[in-house]
Design a protein around this nucleic acid. Structure first.
Length: 530
RNA sequence: GUCAGAGUAGCUCAGUUGGUUAGAGCAUCGGACUCAUAAGCCGAGGGUCGGGAGUUCAAGUCUCCCCUCUGACACCA
């Protein structure tokens, strides 16, 4: 592993459309992004996690009109609900970009100018059926009866006949194909990559980047009769977000430090915008391309698609209020393989958390601290890795765990990282039962007891450390009960270099005396069905 | 219709280049223990690995056909 390069890591969530309060899908993406960001910070890198909101477009304009408020007022309200949810979920974002931020307009204009200079934008006439909910022109075949949209079956598409500005996407066909070939990791997972390849191979058409009859958005710089298409505007938010708060809003400033982005984390529904349109736009403007676009799967509830019509949506705010951030994070990160569709089932949710976090992880710490108090006056034996043979049941797992977990996080396999850690914690419980320190204590085999308790506590510490990107609060409680003055929700001033000791088994000196033990994760209960 | 991907215990999933009685976690049932959040440990039941045919000494793993699901693309209305 190369530690000399890669000091920085930048990643984005989508800029969420503020048509309504955040739904569970947005929360899911953001939790994943946060865990990835936390993992990189843990390693001592400087990290920029970008999230934000996409606020322009006809859909917003109309929603606001229905509410009888100015679009900006509507957006301000919704934005608050996003920020408050991220807060509740312990999301540590570095930038929250709103496409209505004043500096964004400057970036969009400058970017537009670059693309214009390349002769990649032209005016043409567009006729067709337009779905406002999709903000897209639809082919006749994409519509169902009476020109209702196949995606928004309650919305009728509108006939439009207008002049629009187009982006010369077709010009970038070959360049994109080369990109996908030379950078096979650019689109992940592989199944999604195939879809994109398939799509691109059939030939790219130019796409329109402006609308008329729309006020809510930025005007096209050279023609204020037109408004910039919401997607063109939104994607550029990733660049605007990179500006430091006090910097002048120029492309050069924005791109200076964090560009290109290492990872765009998105849902599979917006893959085409990120994997096709976006790199083409950037190429046109002469900018380097992001390293990776990862399109994750969708969530179902009890095996069914979620939707307003079925009335089976999950409210992330309600969920986190009821069960807490760590519980929600853990379920979605551990129980769902990133990239696959995943299911939410409340009984499974309760079972997983109570088992993994309360019974296995939490209880292993609790029972051991109990013994430490009774058998060792709460004083941790000062041992280290060298005092254990390499085939010791816990050391043998712990020695390689750090590397395996790092590998998993780097491959965005958070679920596998959790599973690997849980293997150690399960081994801890078995080891305690197998070695029965309570018997040894009665036989006055004190040094054996100390050995056992040290090995157990060190294993739990390591587990907590490696799980901290996923369950920061629980990990913090464990660290604190182990005597470390440490909070995984705060930037650690000494985090530089900490990773190499903390991520290894038996290399970190333990604090000597421990305080009061108390359960780090309380069991959850299903709400009563009244 | 075309092209991908998937179909393995009640649930969520692992199963390397084909090789001994198909694994894990949860759930269910039983047992012994007591340090602990009535947790943990040990054990049991539970699978014709979607169906069928074939290749092979040997197939969950390879080939062909079929069924189901998901996605992308396309066509017809």
């Amino acid at each position: 592993m190369n530690h000399t390069e890669n000091h920085k890591f930048s990643l984005t969530t989508p800029l969420y459309y503020v048509n309504g309060v955040p739904h569970i899908g947005s929360a899911y993406t953001t939790m994943v992004a946060d865990a990835i960001a936390r993992f990189h910070r843990l390693q001592g890198k400087s990290v920029l996690l970008v999230t934000g909101t996409d606020e322009h477009g006809q859909k917003i304009q109309r929603t606001a009109a229905e509410e009888n408020v100015e679009p900006q007022v509507h957006c301000d309200r919704i934005v608050e609900s996003f920020k408050s949810l991220w807060d509740k979920l312990d999301i540590k974002y570095d930038r929250f970009i709103r496409t209505t931020d004043p500096q964004h307009k400057q970036i969009v204009n400058e970017f537009f100018a670059r693309v214009w200079e390349q002769d990649d934008i032209y005016l043409d006439r567009q006729q067709g059926w337009y779905c406002v909910s999709c903000e897209e022109f639809k082919e006749e075949r994409d519509l169902i009866e009476d020109h209702y949209c196949a995606i928004h079956t309650n919305k009728q598409a509108e006939w439009r006949d207008e002049e629009n500005y187009f982006f010369r996407l077709s010009k970038y066909q070959q360049q994109l194909e080369k990109l996908y070939e030379s950078q096979p990791d650019f689109i992940q997972p592989a199944s999604r990559r195939n879809e994109v390849l398939n799509f691109v191979q059939q030939g790219l058409k130019d796409f329109s980047i402006s609308r008329i009859d729309l006020d809510w958005g930025f005007p096209i710089p050279i023609d204020d009769q037109h408004t910039i298409y919401v997607w063109f505007d939104a994607l550029l938010g990733y660049i605007t977000a990179l500006l430091d708060p006090d910097q002048a809003p120029t492309l050069d400033n924005a791109l200076a430090k964090w560009w290109p982005i290492d990872l765009h984390l998105i849902g599979k529904d917006i893959l085409r915008f990120h994997a096709v349109y976006w790199p083409a736009m950037l190429a046109s403007a002469g900018l380097p391309l992001p390293s990776k676009v990862f399109g994750h799967g969708f969530l179902t509830k009890d095996g069914l698609k979620m939707g307003k019509t079925l009335g089976n949506t999950i409210d992330p705010i309600e969920l986190v209020d009821r069960y807490g951030a760590d519980a929600v994070r853990y379920y979605f990160l551990k129980e769902i393989e990133l990239g696959n569709d995943g299911d939410f089932n409340e009984t499974r949710f309760i079972n997983v958390l109570n088992n993994d976090l309360a019974d296995v992880l939490g209880n292993s710490l609790n029972r051991t601290l109990g013994m430490l108090k009774k058998y060792c006056q709460s004083t941790v034996p000062q041992l280290s890795s060298a005092d254990f043979s390499s085939d010791h049941p816990l050391k043998s797992i712990g020695m390689t765990l750090g590397d395996r977990v790092v590998q998993a996080y780097e491959n965005l396999q958070v679920s596998q990282a959790c599973t690997a850690v849980l293997t150690l914690v399960r081994a801890v419980n078995k080891y305690i039962d197998d070695s029965a320190p309570w018997k040894l204590f009665k036989q006055e085999q004190h040094s054996e007891v100390e050995q056992i308790l040290y090995a157990v506590l060190e294993s739990i510490r390591l587990s907590a450390y490696l799980l901290s990107p996923v369950i920061p609060s629980t990990s913090s409680k464990i660290y604190q009960q182990l005597g470390f003055d440490w909070d995984f929700n705060q930037e650690q001033e000494n985090s530089q270099g900490a990773f190499s000791t903390h991520s290894n088994w038996g290399e970190l000196p333990m604090s000597k005396a421990l305080g009061q033990a108390s359960p780090v994760f309380l069991k959850l209960e299903l709400p009563s069905k009244d």
